[in-house]
Structure formats: structure tokens, C-alpha cells
Design a binder for these strands. Structure first.
Lengths: 191, 191
DNA sequence: ATATATATAGACCAATCGGTATAATTTTTA
DNA sequence: TAAAAATTATACCGATTGGTCTATATATAT
């Protein structure tokens, strides 16, 4: 029963955190190995393609983590409006509590790497698609026609990502909270 | 009459472009001096505080540039809804035409540096505030009460920034176009 | 013309970057 | 237990990073 965290897992977990906080280029492999406790020799054994491969798998871990948070938040209500508002409030609360030292998931890596690595660009694209699909599903189960649900999911995704970026830069959760308040009108269900 | 572009200006112009395309950490001072034609000696003469100072002034140049684009777009109509929609369409068109090789203004630097440099964080904050104020002004002149206009401006700013990020990552202007279509409902003026 | 700022030129610095090499070790299989 | 496979440990690599230094021009004054 090998239940302890493997070196590979430790590397991915640490890298995910650092890439989110510092971005791709500011995060060195030496820092990742040092903070994870795994040696550099292990890094290139488990990730023979180097930093890019490690970043890709880190993005995928972050994607799963965020997706689970979205699912958790959305199951709070059958009403898509209330559910999505609840999820955004969740983000805003956590953002406020943790002193916004965590960065914005995916976004930094997406902006830094999309033009230099198609692999990483696709990884980030896949992340956003997953988030989008979760919102779309919720809207469909709330009565929206599928095509319309997908369109609205893109808009909701944009609002959240943009508000997250603004809240991060301002150091203030207000943009996230204001966006949450407008969800009913985007979904055309007056409150 | 010294009308030729000074070394300082060349450095800022080149740095603005590179920071937007590649982000802060991926852009080296050697690359900036090389592409601008200005020598490294000049860099530390004009920017004694180094990369951070150059980045701050670059952000400010980008801010002015984008602000002018917003003003240009918004003056297209007295109706805030149509004006804002027109501006977003402008972005989407340019994005599509230029093969999205330009990056997202401000955002990358904001995400990369906000946690490590309060100066740069404030510079990016100032950028977003300027954009926000232009939208808010337009809404006020369109009949919105000031406080409400400011709230909606934050939301519109979020939608645009988020959609820009998604369009960039997808390599597709669709998120921007979908967000434009939802502007009437956010401003509660049915089309 | 001469003195004085202003600006340029580019060699140089320690530190760090991503990445490689190989030997030693641990774990698994036979 | 012996052989084989998986993993770890470092020392090391050239290249590049942001930043410094001093000598040399180029203007702008007096």
C-alpha cells in the first residue's frame, strides 16, 4: 500500500501552486524542486519534456481542482441564477479571506504561454472549456435550450474571469460581487 | 527642432509592445534594447530604477493608447449600448485581423507582477480605472445615475477583459462577440 | 572655443535560467 | 537472493538574466 505522495505528484502540486501565484516564466525549476522536496534528477525523469510538460500537467491539475469547485458551488441550488451567484460569492469570499495571495487560476499561464506553446495554449483552452461546459449544463438543466445555454456560458465565463482579474489587480473583491449581482439580468430572469 | 523619436521613447514603445505580447518576465532587457535600437547604457540612464520603472512607464503608455481607442469607439453613438457594442466589435475585428499575435493589453503584466511589485500593481489598477471611468462617463451621459453607472462600468470592464482573455486563449473572437450581444441586457435596455 | 550637462557605447558582473550527465540508490521482479 | 528496473542525487553545462561600470561622444550652454 504505497499511500504516500509520490515525487511526481509533489512536483505537480507544488508547480500548480507556483505557476498560479507567479506565472510561468517567474517560476524556476529550482524553486519547484526545492519547495516540493523532490530532487531535480527526478524532475527530468518524470517529465522528460521539461518545464513545458510539467506546466501542462500542472494546468490539468488546476483545471480539475477548479472544476470541482464549480460543481460544488453550482449544486447549491436548482435555479441556475442562484447557483451561479452562489459560486461567484464563494470565489469572492475565498479571495477576500486569503488576502488574494493565490493569483488567478490558469489566466497567467494562458497569457504568458499561448503565443509560444500551442500545447500549453490548448491546455488552458481545455480548462476554460471545462468550466464553460459546467455552466452550460446547469443552464440546460434549468430550462435553457442547449445552443443558448452555451452562448450564455461563454458570457458568464468571461464575466467571472474578467472580474477575477480586476479583483486581483485591485486587491478588492468588489468586481466579483458586482458581477454576481448582474447574473439575473444576463440570464433574463428578473430578481 | 528635435522631432525624431528619442531613445527613451523608443525604449518605452518597444517595451510596451513586448510586455503585452510576452509578459513581464519573458521580456528581457537585452531584447528591449536590441529591438528598440537603443543601447543598454541609455536604458539605465533614462530608467535608473531598471526594469520595474521601464515597465511602469510602458504600462502607462499602453493605458493611454487603449483609453484613446475606447474614446474613439464610444463616440460612435450617443446611445451607450450601441456605443459599447461598437467598441467591443472594434476589438473583435482587430483581434481577428491581426491573427491575435498582440496579446491582451495590461492583463499579463497585472497577473505577473501584482504580487511582487505594488508600484506595478498600482499602474495596472490605474489602467483599469481609466477604462472603467470612460464607460461610466458614457453611461452617465446616457441617463444613468452616477453610482449605478460606476457599478455597471465595472461589470462591462469585467466582461470585456474576460472575453478578451478567452478569445486570446481560444484564438477565436467569438467570446468577444457574444459578450457584445449581451450588453443590452446588462444595461437593461432590450434591443 | 570652452566648459558642462546629457546621452551613448558596450564590456563586464554574479546569479539564475532550463536542461543534461552519470553514479548511487531504492524498489520490484525473478 | 540476484538481477533488473525505477528512482534519486548532484555536479555540471552554456546561455541568459537584470544590473553596474567607466570611457566616450554629443549636445547645450557661456
Amino acid at each position: 500500500m504505497n499511500e504516500k505522495v509520490s515525487s511526481k505528484e509533489k512536483l505537480i502540486i507544488t508547480a500548480s501552486k507556483l505557476f498560479q501565484q507567479q506565472g510561468y516564466h517567474a517560476t524556476g525549476l529550482n524553486q519547484i524542486t526545492k519547495e516540493s522536496g523532490a530532487p531535480k534528477g527526478s524532475l527530468y525523469y518524470h517529465f522528460p519534456d521539461g518545464k513545458e510538460q510539467l506546466a501542462l500537467e500542472s494546468i490539468q491539475l488546476t483545471t480539475e481542482f477548479v472544476a470541482r469547485q464549480i460543481e460544488e458551488g453550482l449544486k447549491q441550488s436548482d435555479n441556475p441564477v442562484i447557483a451561479i451567484q452562489h459560486f461567484i460569492s464563494m470565489i469572492a469570499d475565498r479571495f477576500q479571506k486569503e488576502g488574494h495571495q493565490q493569483g488567478v487560476p490558469i489566466a497567467a499561464v494562458a497569457l504568458e504561454t499561448s503565443l509560444i506553446s500551442d500545447e500549453l495554449r490548448k491546455g488552458c483552452q481545455e480548462a476554460y472549456r471545462k468550466f464553460q461546459n459546467l455552466f452550460a449544463q446547469k443552464l440546460v438543466s434549468g430550462g435553457f435550450v442547449e445552443e443558448r445555454a452555451e452562448q450564455l456560458a461563454v458570457v458568464i465565463n468571461s464575466m467571472i474571469e474578467g472580474a477575477f482579474l480586476l479583483s486581483f489587480t485591485y486587491g478588492d473583491s468588489r468586481p466579483l460581487r458586482l458581477v454576481a449581482e448582474e447574473i439575473p439580468h444576463v440570464l433574463r430572469m428578473e430578481d
